[in-house]
Simulated scan of single mutants.
Amino acid sequence: MFHRKKHRLAAGFAATVLAGAAVAGGVTMAQANTTAQAPVSSVQIVVGPESAPGQPSEAHCPDGMGVLNGGFQSVTFSRSGGGDPYDGVTVNAPFRNGKGWVALLMTGKVRARAVCVPEAQAPQAVVGKVSGEADDSVARCPAGTKAVAGGYTRETWYRNGYGESTDDIVANAPTMDGSGWYARQFHGKTVARALCS
């Protein structure tokens, strides 16, 4: 009985020492699990209005906030008489000033969505040059920063005689070294946009 009690006291002492070491190190274990997470109130998802057919939807970040990332939801996506899709996502990108996200379908209706954070935490928006046809557009990040997100806007977009899309985005990704974001269309010209941090 005495040995078991002594063992429990030793175990309790060891736990106290470990807890004390964690506190002395600056954070408790409970704090360590929460300090890496941003407060929920510092991130806001903003949903843009439903667009008219073939028109953009814009999700604007609230005052004092910038965009961290974004995307879109197709509300309608045009189809041929046989049911095949003939629409295209021609724009899916951060605003040029980094204050929101824009999305556009060739003929359908869309809603843009933006992930917004306080401006002090928001990455910097960078716009690439207009590409050649079927060529890359690259948005290069400033020195010392890397691309954390990005997107594209179309400069041209090809259609057939029936108005159906004959183009598509074939690249929309960070560069291999992470120093920027690039985009490319199958036929037309595009412009990459990067969010750099």
Rank of each mutant, 00 (worst) to 15 (best):
P118M: 06
P174S: 06
L18R: 09
D168G: 14
T153A: 11
T34R: 13
R193F: 05
A11G: 11
R111F: 04
E119G: 10
V47Y: 13
V170I: 13
V43D: 09
N33D: 07
S197V: 09
R154I: 04
A122V: 05
R8G: 08
P174D: 02
Y158R: 09
F95N: 01
T34S: 14
L104M: 13
S179P: 01
D135P: 00
Q31H: 01
A32E: 12
K5I: 03
G163R: 08
H7D: 14
T175F: 03
S165I: 02
W181Y: 08
G26C: 05
A125W: 02
P174E: 03
T34N: 12
R8T: 12
A52C: 09
S74W: 11
D63Y: 06
I169V: 15
K99F: 06
A134V: 02
K129F: 12
T153S: 13
D63G: 14
Q55A: 11
R111I: 07
A103E: 07
G180Q: 03
S179H: 12
E119N: 14
G150A: 10
A139D: 00
G70P: 00
G81V: 11
S131H: 03
D84V: 13
S179A: 09
F72H: 12
A134L: 00
R4D: 07
M106G: 08
S51N: 01
G26Q: 08
Q185K: 15
R113W: 15
C141A: 01
M1V: 06
G54P: 09
N97H: 10
S80W: 00
L105S: 12
V67M: 06
A59E: 02
S42H: 03
V89S: 05
D167C: 04
M176A: 15
H3N: 15
G71L: 09
R154Y: 11
F186T: 08
D136P: 04
T153P: 13
E155C: 02
R184V: 12
V43H: 11
G26V: 00
A52L: 12
V148F: 09
E164N: 15
V46R: 11
A36F: 15
A36H: 15
V191D: 01
T35S: 13
G161V: 10
V40Y: 06
V170C: 03
S165H: 00
A139L: 00
A19R: 07
G108W: 02
T35D: 11
Q44P: 06
D136S: 09
A114H: 06
A171F: 11
A38I: 07
R111V: 09
P142Q: 10
T145S: 07
P49V: 14
H3V: 15
C141T: 03
S197A: 12
V23W: 05
R4Y: 07
D167K: 11
N160G: 14
G20A: 11
P49S: 15
Q44V: 08
V130D: 13
G71W: 05
R113L: 14
P94Q: 01
D136W: 14
A36D: 13
